[in-house]
Protein backbone atom coordinates (compact mmCIF):
# COMPACT_ATOMS: atom_id res chain seq x y z
CA UNK A 1 0.00 0.00 0.00
CA UNK A 2 1.32 3.43 -0.89
CA UNK A 3 0.51 5.92 1.84
CA UNK A 4 0.77 9.57 0.76
CA UNK A 5 0.97 12.20 3.49
CA UNK A 6 1.02 15.87 2.64
CA UNK A 7 -0.84 18.50 0.66
CA UNK A 8 -0.88 20.79 -2.32
CA UNK A 9 -0.65 24.52 -1.77
CA UNK A 10 -0.16 27.57 -3.97
CA UNK A 11 3.55 26.80 -4.36
CA UNK A 12 3.39 23.13 -5.28
CA UNK A 13 2.69 19.58 -4.16
CA UNK A 14 4.33 18.30 -1.00
CA UNK A 15 3.82 14.62 -0.35
CA UNK A 16 5.89 11.98 1.40
CA UNK A 17 5.04 8.53 0.08
CA UNK A 18 5.68 5.38 2.10
CA UNK A 19 5.31 2.03 0.39
CA UNK A 20 4.10 0.18 3.47
CA UNK A 21 4.20 -3.25 1.79
CA UNK A 22 7.92 -3.18 2.60
CA UNK A 23 7.46 -2.32 6.28
CA UNK A 24 6.34 -5.83 7.24
CA UNK A 25 9.64 -7.32 6.08
CA UNK A 26 11.62 -4.81 8.10
CA UNK A 27 12.39 -5.60 11.72
CA UNK A 28 14.12 -2.53 13.11
CA UNK A 29 12.50 0.25 10.99
CA UNK A 30 15.74 2.26 10.77
CA UNK A 31 14.31 5.36 9.08
CA UNK A 32 12.12 6.11 12.10
CA UNK A 33 15.19 7.21 14.01
CA UNK A 34 17.01 8.70 11.03
CA UNK A 35 14.75 11.71 10.61
CA UNK A 36 16.21 14.66 12.59
CA UNK A 37 12.71 16.08 13.06
CA UNK A 38 11.27 12.75 14.25
CA UNK A 39 8.48 12.80 11.71
CA UNK A 40 8.05 9.04 11.42
CA UNK A 41 6.27 6.65 13.73
CA UNK A 42 5.39 2.98 13.59
CA UNK A 43 1.68 2.27 13.77
CA UNK A 44 -0.49 -0.82 13.50
CA UNK A 45 -2.74 -0.28 10.48
CA UNK A 46 -6.31 -1.52 9.88
CA UNK A 47 -4.97 -4.87 8.67
CA UNK A 48 -2.85 -5.47 11.78
CA UNK A 49 0.41 -4.74 9.95
CA UNK A 50 3.17 -2.69 11.60
CA UNK A 51 3.88 0.12 9.18
CA UNK A 52 5.68 3.45 9.14
CA UNK A 53 3.60 6.62 9.00
CA UNK A 54 4.13 10.36 9.23
CA UNK A 55 3.02 11.69 12.62
CA UNK A 56 -0.20 13.63 12.57
CA UNK A 57 1.39 16.83 13.84
CA UNK A 58 3.82 16.85 10.90
CA UNK A 59 1.41 16.00 8.09
CA UNK A 60 0.20 19.56 7.69
CA UNK A 61 3.66 21.07 7.35
CA UNK A 62 5.98 18.60 5.65
CA UNK A 63 7.27 21.33 3.35
CA UNK A 64 8.56 23.30 6.32
CA UNK A 65 9.62 20.38 8.50
CA UNK A 66 11.78 18.94 5.72
CA UNK A 67 13.33 22.29 4.78
CA UNK A 68 16.58 21.72 6.77
CA UNK A 69 17.24 18.54 4.76
CA UNK A 70 16.54 20.28 1.45
CA UNK A 71 18.85 23.24 0.86
CA UNK A 72 18.16 25.15 -2.35
CA UNK A 73 21.48 24.10 -3.89
CA UNK A 74 23.63 21.01 -3.44
CA UNK A 75 20.95 18.91 -1.81
CA UNK A 76 22.51 15.97 0.06
CA UNK A 77 20.77 12.58 0.13
CA UNK A 78 17.74 12.71 2.43
CA UNK A 79 18.37 10.90 5.73
CA UNK A 80 15.00 9.12 5.68
CA UNK A 81 15.43 7.87 2.11
CA UNK A 82 19.02 6.78 2.79
CA UNK A 83 18.10 4.95 5.97
CA UNK A 84 15.36 2.79 4.45
CA UNK A 85 16.95 -0.40 3.09
CA UNK A 86 13.81 -1.24 1.07
CA UNK A 87 13.65 2.07 -0.84
CA UNK A 88 10.13 2.43 0.47
CA UNK A 89 10.14 6.19 0.92
CA UNK A 90 10.00 8.99 -1.60
CA UNK A 91 9.29 12.72 -1.63
CA UNK A 92 7.34 14.54 -4.33
CA UNK A 93 9.47 17.70 -4.16
Amino acid sequence: MKANYGYMDGSGEYYITIDTDHCNDCTDHPRVGACPVGMFEIIVDDYDDEVAAIKEENRKKVKYDCAPCKPVTGRPPLPCVEACPADAISHSW
Binding site: M1, A3, N4, Y7, D46, R59, K60, K61
Partner: peptide, 14 residues
Protein backbone atom coordinates in the same frame (compact mmCIF):
# COMPACT_ATOMS: atom_id res chain seq x y z
CA UNK B 1 -12.91 -2.60 0.34
CA UNK B 2 -9.31 -3.24 1.35
CA UNK B 3 -7.25 -0.10 0.97
CA UNK B 4 -4.54 -0.39 -1.70
CA UNK B 5 -3.19 3.17 -1.77
CA UNK B 6 -4.28 6.37 -0.08
CA UNK B 7 -3.46 10.04 0.24
CA UNK B 8 -4.49 12.25 3.14
CA UNK B 9 -4.51 16.01 3.41
CA UNK B 10 -5.25 17.36 6.86
CA UNK B 11 -4.00 20.83 6.16
CA UNK B 12 -6.20 23.80 6.96
CA UNK B 13 -9.16 24.05 4.54
CA UNK B 14 -8.33 20.71 2.95
Amino acid sequence: GKVEDFAVNEQCAA
